[in-house]
Computed example of a mutant assay.
Amino acid sequence: MYMAKEMNNRQAYFNYQIDDRYVAGIALLGTEVKSVREGKVSFNDSFCLFDKGELWLRGLYIAEYALGTTNNHIAVHDRKLLLTARELKRLQASTKERGFTIVPLRVFFNDKNLVKVEIGLARGKKTHDKRETIKKRDTDREIKRFLK
């Protein structure tokens, strides 16, 4: 059986400072699971929002399944995230604070072959923080190159 590697949201780590992480289930249609297994997921402009006490993932692109029939899924639509009531209350209270947002960090399969999404409670970085991140990444790259 083919297992896809986990898909990471690299832009989220660059644009945001991640304070807290949660693992949530995600409500998917049948062909969406097959596309995720093939690794056809894109996090461009995806974010989480609350609607009527439920957490939804908006903007996550899961490509249509190549072997799907007329019942194939729509590539971009809102997907419900499955968390406990306590976690939802904690996240909703945190997002009401100034500057916090919820972003998806990675999509992966757990031990039971269920699709899970790791979400992070994040605060946006300023421009100078992004420059520091770039500088640190470049120096780490130079050190690794020198040690080889």
Rank of each mutant, 00 (worst) to 15 (best):
T101P: 05
L83C: 11
R10G: 04
L57M: 02
V36F: 09
C48H: 12
Q11E: 13
Y16C: 12
K52W: 09
A85M: 05
L82Q: 07
R123Q: 02
S35I: 09
V76L: 07
E87G: 11
T133K: 08
F109E: 00
A85I: 13
N71L: 05
D129H: 14
R137M: 15
L67N: 01
A85V: 14
K148V: 13
F108G: 00
Q17G: 05
I134W: 13
N113V: 06
E32V: 12
L83F: 12
F146G: 05
G99W: 15
D138R: 13
R141P: 12
T127A: 13
S46H: 07
E132P: 06
D45Q: 13
F50M: 06
K52E: 09
R131T: 09
Y16K: 01
E97P: 08
V107F: 02
R106F: 01
E6P: 09
Y22L: 09
L29E: 08
E38D: 05
D19C: 07
E142P: 05
D45E: 03
V33N: 03
V23I: 14
L82V: 12
L121A: 06
A75Y: 00
P104Y: 08
I102Q: 06
K52Q: 12
K135R: 15
I143H: 09
T139N: 14
F50I: 08
K135H: 15
D140S: 13
D20S: 13
A85R: 05
I143M: 08
Y65R: 10
G68S: 03
D140M: 12
K34E: 10
F100T: 15
V23K: 03
V107N: 00
L105K: 01
T127H: 14
N8F: 03
H128N: 12
R58T: 08
K135L: 15
G30F: 04
A27C: 01
A122F: 03
T95R: 15
E54T: 08
A122Y: 07
T95E: 14
L60A: 01
T70E: 04
R79I: 11
G124C: 05
I102T: 01
L29M: 02
G30C: 15
Y16N: 01
S94Q: 14
D111W: 07
Q11G: 09
N44E: 05
K148F: 15
H128Q: 10
E64N: 02
G30M: 13
I134S: 11
R90Q: 15
T70W: 00
V33E: 05
H77R: 11
A75I: 04
D140H: 10
K144R: 15
F108W: 01
M7G: 07
S42H: 10
H73M: 04
N44S: 11
H77T: 04
L57G: 00
I102A: 05
S46V: 03
L67T: 04
R137G: 07
L67H: 00
D19F: 09
A24H: 04
D45S: 08
Y65D: 00
T84Y: 11
D20E: 11
E54F: 07
E6W: 06
R141K: 14
A27V: 14
T139K: 14
A75W: 02
D138S: 13
L82N: 11
R79Q: 04
E38H: 02
